[in-house]
Amino acid sequence: MIVADRKPVEEIIEQIKDHDNILILGCNECVTVCEAGGKKEVGVLASALRMHAMKAGRDVKIDEVTLERQCDHEYLEEIRDRIDQYDAVVSLACGVGVQFMAEKYHDMPIYPGVNTTFLGATEKRGLWTERCQACGSCILARTGGICPVARCAKRLLNGPCGGSSKGSCEINREVDCAWQLIIDRLKALGKLDEYEEICPIKDWSTDRAGGPRKVVREDVQL
């Protein structure tokens, strides 16, 4: 899932200081799971912003809505009939949702309420870690299901660098060396001979280096 982290309330207060009718818009998908932008976080942020406004003696209307998703037209359409009552929206969706919202409601100021961080997994409640960089050309079949693009600081494709020490990366002792993990897993799978195969130069044109990407599926388009 897409992992996001809450923005400091002070930053959001600064962003919306000139608005009096504000919609806090949550998203029921990834940001709900990582406890950054779901219905609960919408409620907490709205309550904090209302109290801040009341304390300053300002009469500010702050409403709460949480959509199923903010990255699909049909869910964003659900607020079309009420969006005009507001003069700003704080979207707690990931960067995708914020931008899709901005595209759909062109005249409405949209402010991000979270910092979109990475594609990752929930290791335990309150701990999310990166697993994928969406490079567009998956090599997990060759690397024991552990991604050196996302998890090796140097994105090395043919074994560890000299900075790998006792299973840790040189950038930080707490970061596992991705290649140590890969070798350990290949060993466990009895496929260590695959480690000897040289990985050819990766086609990075499918990564961000090739500019904004798109997936076109004419077979499912109507």
Binding site: A53, M54, G57, R58
Partner: peptide, 10 residues
């Protein structure tokens, strides 16, 4: 609670 004073002001 300081929000009560703010509310009165508003």
């Amino acid at each position: 609670n300081p929000i009560r004073a703010g509310r009165r002001e508003a």
